[in-house]
Design a protein around this nucleic acid. Structure first.
Lengths: 254, 254
DNA sequence: CGACTTATTGATGCACTTCAAGCGACGTGG
DNA sequence: CCACGTCGCTTGAAGTGCATCAATAAGTCG
């Protein structure tokens, strides 16, 4: 079940058997978390690192007026808070969307990993930077795209991210988000999300039944929202430019 | 003139004389860059790290339809691309707003720094994480706040960030942004930014003359937009919770 | 099956965009 | 020195996209 993480990391970096073994050592800490449950809250002092092995979660803030803003979705293989522990306290919440399998990794374990598994370390860095790139793209999404493009863009992004961890079949993937979740992610009202989805269905770009999203025509959906996958820094686009990473070589004692 | 960086880092971490000396070694690479000039473009392979010593810059993307989205502002003491070099290619642009003094730091220099100056390294980490936290808050800003609150929030944020590097006097700071810059940051039209600023002036919250912004009543402005500075992780709020940072201790060979 | 949550649809209103014209500041060149 | 062009800002008028309110319908879970 730690497949998701290993698959994701290996999509960036070929790991050794020892690396994979070390990653599997995380598993004993596995926890079932119900849907709609907070993993960490604003104000908490960051403790263990959380890794999603199965299910969906999100990062969000709640404003004084009760308005919720979702800032990121986590899918299997994603770390929720890989780096936050350097800061004094959480400035946002992390909560599950669906039921999740979550691994709580003690910081020392990460520490050990970065000390002994340079390939994994490099891959973890890559994860963190891609997460930030995704965040930037969300800002572009909300700031510059029309509501229908926003939602289409999210669908495309999730498709690619879930493909990496093997959660897509026939352009379909589990979709446990409510329309209110989408609304709070995209800066829209729930009503308008409903109408927007209707439009995407009418254009025969997607279907959405029983919490499963199907993308009927991936290329048309990408074209519809001007999707450019470069910000995900996936393997294919990246492979040619492989280079040494100085900050990391020093981690390896170089 | 490298004051800005050292001040910023020291607001987090007391440095040794040797640390400061090492930071000053960056200066020879200083460059004058005119206003409205790109430092890096989308598609470029990340090379040197850019540090702003004076002036303002921004991170932005341009969509196929020509729409520009600004995703971050850089002020003196900010790194533009501290970590991006791990990725294969830039997925966005970085350009100056005003004339800037920019230092181009070779990656080896950063590498050397992280190998020999653990305090600096920890402070650099902190910078990177705060930058990400700021990005998250921008998402909240665009997604959940009204236009007047958005702009007020930006003013509050810049006030605090500039105070750290000593660029604020009597609640005033240089403000070289055009209203179009603001519009492209906040997901608004230029016209509406103009009207919003008029409103903030009418409420006697700010004045804006000759590219200098003055906040007339900081507390009222903060209240107006519900400003919570926790996401900036400034020293005062952070001081109590100082802890060791595992990932970094391994960088130090621990 | 019945209770509750989530989604849909319609009607209404307004916040924001777009278009367009005028204005002031600034810089350049005659 | 003034004429002129450019750029950034302001203001008005008109249109619309999205929010809000409200009521119904469809899922979903006990």
């Amino acid at each position: 079940m730690q497949d998701a993480l290993i698959r994701k990391l290996e999509s960036f970096e070929e790991l050794t058997d020892a690396d994979r073994e070390a990653l599997r050592a995380f598993v004993p800490r596995l926890r079932q978390v119900p849907a709609r449950t907070d993993l960490i809250r604003e104000g908490d002092v960051p403790g263990n690192v959380h890794l999603i092995l199965d299910g969906y979660a999100c990062r969000y803030k709640v404003l004084p007026d009760g308005q919720r803003q979702i800032m990121a979705y986590f899918v299997p293989g994603d770390f929720c808070d890989l780096n936050v522990f350097i800061l004094d306290q959480m400035d946002h919440n992390i909560g599950t969307i669906s039921q999740c399998q979550v691994v709580e990794i003690p910081r020392q374990a990460i520490d050990h990993m970065t000390g002994h598994h340079p390939l994994v370390t490099r891959a973890l860095w890559w994860c963190a930077l891609v997460d930030e790139a995704v965040l930037r793209e969300w800002l572009v999404n909300i700031g510059s795209r029309s509501p229908d493009q926003r939602i289409a863009h999210l669908f495309c992004e999730l498709l690619l991210r879930l493909e990496v961890v093997g959660r897509v079949q026939d352009n379909s993937y589990p979709f446990p988000f409510t329309q209110i979740d989408l609304a709070d992610s995209m800066g829209l009202s729930g009503v308008h999300v409903s109408r927007t989805l209707r439009e995407l269905r009418r254009l025969e770009l997607i279907t959405l039944h029983h919490r499963v999203l199907t993308i009927l025509d991936v290329e048309r959906l990408k074209a519809y929202c001007g999707f450019n996958p470069n910000y995900l820094h996936l393997r294919n686009a990246r492979w040619s430019g492989r280079r040494q990473v100085p900050w990391l070589s020093s981690v390896q004692g170089g």
